[in-house]
Design a protein around this nucleic acid. Structure first.
Length: 764
DNA sequence: CATAGGTGTCATTAC
DNA sequence: ACGTAATGACACCTA
């Protein structure tokens, strides 16, 4: 537990530092003081505010809230790698997963690539896998597909065995894994190998022509150095399909723009593809990134949402692209061409798909294709000899590049699309830096370009405040308490004491008996969310009350049946309440003995001791009765000192046991909450980045508009002699009332400097 | 009424 | 993973 705390503390600190570095403002103080008890507790250690009276009062309902800690795989939730990787992944933009699908589409129309491996089953697999991505039960299936993916990787690893050993899941999780690079090397290697052997492998299942074409079309990513296919090879040697052609092909072959369901589209596409053209590795490699990168259905959903919003954004971009092209794009700019090709396309996924795929494609084309020729051929000597299974290796390359495109370069690609202008070749990369300049730029723009400063500040506020963080403390004890009166205080009146004691007694047995009906934590979380601040399942107290007053009634709840088992075995017959009597002896003697044996084995040490000492009442009562009743009970019997001591020990231990269980449960909840917070933050960050891209784009647009208007107005101005003003000597200045003044340049510069200084001063 | 001491309970930690 | 002892903190009661 110490390690847990240490880890969480460090992780949170890292997390906070990271966020602040990124530019997301993290006000730790607010979290510590009000919002997030778990955070506060973990960072500062157990605080009295968290542990104190609330739990006193909450105790009764708290017990009922029970998930049994047994039901939870604790390791699942606080493995260091997972949280850390999540935290660290916060600075990655995880949205554009469309690329994968787009490549798929690209590949099919060429058709001729098709190898001779029939794999209709795989096609089905893939389509189902895609549906899984959005399906409600993808959690289970995901885990099924993942091994498949790694298996495929290992299969591919057969091409270069030493590498396959490295293909761990972590590699995949971390984004652009090594294997991508390795695969690319393998691909290059194969490329070289291919040329050297030159048709020696004609008998191979994969048409070597297509393989060569694909290999030749390898592009090298400038950032990672990884290579990937520039486009899908056809039967003929097409090294330079134009973007327009790409688009046309894409549109011609994937008519899913009308369908609302994106995944369905993809599956239909994959089904439409001749199954022979999809060798084993490809499909899974194409699909699995979606599955492997996202560890939970929640992530999938999140990604999907992100994807959709990106799509919307891009679609919007399409509609507004005309003007932007005018401003930004030099003629022939591939990206803007990309946009201009589909100006009339309705806002749907279709457009986005195109953009997503072609953006990456075109970017790679323009930036990296020259490097293809300069691939280090010599490296092949150091690489392992290739097994002549072209299809596999080709697919591996294909798959891996899609992986790569998914994890890392895709971010760049998509954002390159977003800001298609040549001015900002990598706007998202600059976003983090720009984040710090946000305020300045916004305010400057507001002042310089006639922006309404209020609007600008609203923008800023939105950046700052619209975090959407669910740092709710609803699970924290402090907000849970609605019940009043601790057991000790309530014990003064018999009626209230009975209620409180009943709740605690039965609920404790409830939680004692394990996760009855509660198998997952998420379920519990959902419940808690549903309950809100009201607290931990008040229904349980109903159970509890009922159960205490008449424990036999528990049998009416099937899942509580064994919970309500009576402990009357150690009671003196005279002391037995009628309610505590075992069921009438309808059972045969043999089964009775068996039951006794079973109960015997079920008994705890204290129960054994109590039995040995002939304690005349149940451990349950000993532990859960309120003090007053407990003392009453003790006074009813003539008990030896040893018996009394044992009873007190039993009570103490029983209480402590429940406390420990609660403690562990709480810890777990804290971890889960933190996990959820991380997820929320990831989502928020992605959203904010998207918004920022949008804002920057519109700002740039406005700026350019203003600039052109300025030039137009300035160019028309004439002095008293009818001569135009020199731009070097005069400038136009916007006055506050909307008028425009012509002032000498020097004066304008001075004022501009003053305005520059203002926001900085204000920042201090 | 304020206060110290006792008691019961709970949370947490360490084993 | 769970149970247990030890410990600290708190609420409540009582003298």
């Amino acid at each position: 537990m110490l390690s847990l705390k240490k880890y969480l503390t460090e992780g949170l600190l890292q997390f906070t530092i990271l966020l602040s570095l990124i530019g997301v403002r993290v006000d730790v103080d607010t979290y510590l003081t009000s919002q997030l008890p778990p955070l506060r507790e973990i960072i500062l250690g157990p605080s009295s505010a968290y542990t104190q009276t609330q739990f006193h009062n909450l105790r009764n309902t708290l017990d009922g809230y029970g998930i049994h800690p047994k039901s939870i795989d604790l390791d699942n939730y606080f493995t260091a790698r997972r949280l850390l990787s999540q935290v660290r992944a916060l600075d990655r933009f995880q949205v554009p997963t469309t690329e994968v699908n787009a490549w798929l589409v690209h590949r099919d129309p060429e058709g001729s690539v098709s190898g001779s491996q029939p794999s209709s089953g795989l096609t089905l697999e893939s389509s189902s896998g895609l549906q899984d991505v959005t399906g409600p039960d993808n959690g289970v299936r995901e885990s099924e597909t993942e091994p498949g993916f790694s298996e495929d990787l290992e299969d591919l690893g057969a091409v270069a065995p030493p590498v396959s050993g490295d293909l761990t899941k972590e590699d995949i999780d971390l984004g652009a894994g090594r294997e991508i690079f390795d695969y690319s090397h393998r691909q290059k290697e194969q490329d070289v190998d291919k040329e050297l052997q030159d048709g020696a492998e004609q008998e191979d299942t994969w048409p070597s022509e297509g393989a060569e074409a694909l290999a030749r079309n390898l592009l090298v990513d400038g950032e990672t150095g990884e290579s990937f296919p520039a486009q899908v090879p056809g039967g003929e040697d097409q090294t330079a399909l134009s973007l327009k052609e790409c688009l046309r092909l894409l549109e011609a072959t994937c008519p899913f723009g009308e369908n609302a369901e994106f995944p369905a589209d993809i599956s239909s596409i994959t089904e439409a593809v001749p199954s022979e053209s999809e060798p084993p590795g490809l499909q899974n490699n194409l699909l699995s990134p979606l599955l492997t990168e996202t560890e939970s259905p929640f992530d999938l959903e999140q990604q999907w949402q992100d994807l959709m919003s990106i799509m919307e954004m891009q679609a919007m971009e399409v509609n507004t692209s005309t003007s932007e092209i005018l401003y930004n794009a030099p003629p022939g700019d591939p990206l803007s061409t990309n946009y201009s090709l589909a100006p009339n396309t309705p806002i749907n996924q279709n457009v986005s798909l195109h953009q997503a795929s072609l953006g990456g494609c075109s970017q790679d084309f323009s930036l990296f294709s020259p490097e293809v020729e300069s691939l280090p051929v010599a490296s092949s000597s150091t690489l392992l000899p290739l097994v002549p299974s072209n299809s596999t290796s080709l697919n591996s390359t294909f798959g891996s590049t899609n992986l790569a495109g998914l994890f890392f370069p895709a971010q760049l690609n998509s954002t390159a699309n977003d800001t298609a202008g040549p001015e900002l070749p990598d706007p998202l990369g600059g976003l983090l830096d720009e984040a710090m300049l946000d305020e300045i730029s916004l305010m400057d723009l507001a002042i310089e370009e006639g922006f309404n400063p209020v609007q600008a500040s609203q923008l800023e506020e939105e950046f700052d405040s619209d975090s959407g963080l669910s740092l709710d403390s609803s699970h924290s004890p402090s907000s849970l308490s609605s019940s009043e009166g601790s057991s000790s205080s309530s014990s003064s009146s018999s009626s209230s004491s009975s209620s409180s004691s009943t709740s605690s007694s039965a609920s404790s047995s409830f939680s004692e008996e394990g996760a009855v009906g509660y198998s997952s934590d998420s379920e519990t979380l959902d419940l808690e969310e549903a309950e809100g601040a009201v607290g931990y399942q008040p229904e349980y107290s109903k159970f509890c009350r009922m159960s205490y007053q008449d424990p036999s009634q528990l049998s009416c709840l099937p899942y509580l049946e064994h919970v309500g088992h009576n402990h009357t075995y150690n009671m003196a017959p005279s002391a037995l309440d009628s309610a505590d009597l075992p069921p009438p002896s309808a059972l045969k003697k043999g089964s009775k003995e068996k039951q006794a044996d079973f109960l015997d084995k079920q008994m705890s040490r204290d129960e054994h001791r109590a039995r040995a000492m002939k304690i005349p009442f149940t451990n349950d009562k000993i532990i859960n009765l309120p003090v007053e009743e407990f003392n009453e009970l003790l006074s009813k019997y003539q008990l030896s000192e040893a018996q009394l001591s044992l009873i007190r020990d039993i009570r103490r231990r029983g209480k402590n046991k429940m406390a420990a269980q609660n403690c562990r449960k709480r810890k777990l909840d804290t971890i889960l909450n933190l996990e959820r917070d991380v997820e929320d933050l990831q989502r928020d960050k992605a959203r904010l980045l998207r918004e920022k891209v949008e804002f920057l784009r519109s700002l740039r647009q406005m700026k350019q508009k203003v600039q052109s208007l300025y030039q137009e107005v300035f160019g028309r101005l004439r002095d008293e002699n009818g001569r135009p003003y020199s731009p070097s000597q005069y400038a136009l200045q916007y006055a506050g009332d909307g008028s425009v003044l012509l002032i000498p340049r020097t004066l304008a510069d001075q004022q501009a400097r003053r305005q520059e200084r203002k926001p900085k001063d204000r920042r201090k």
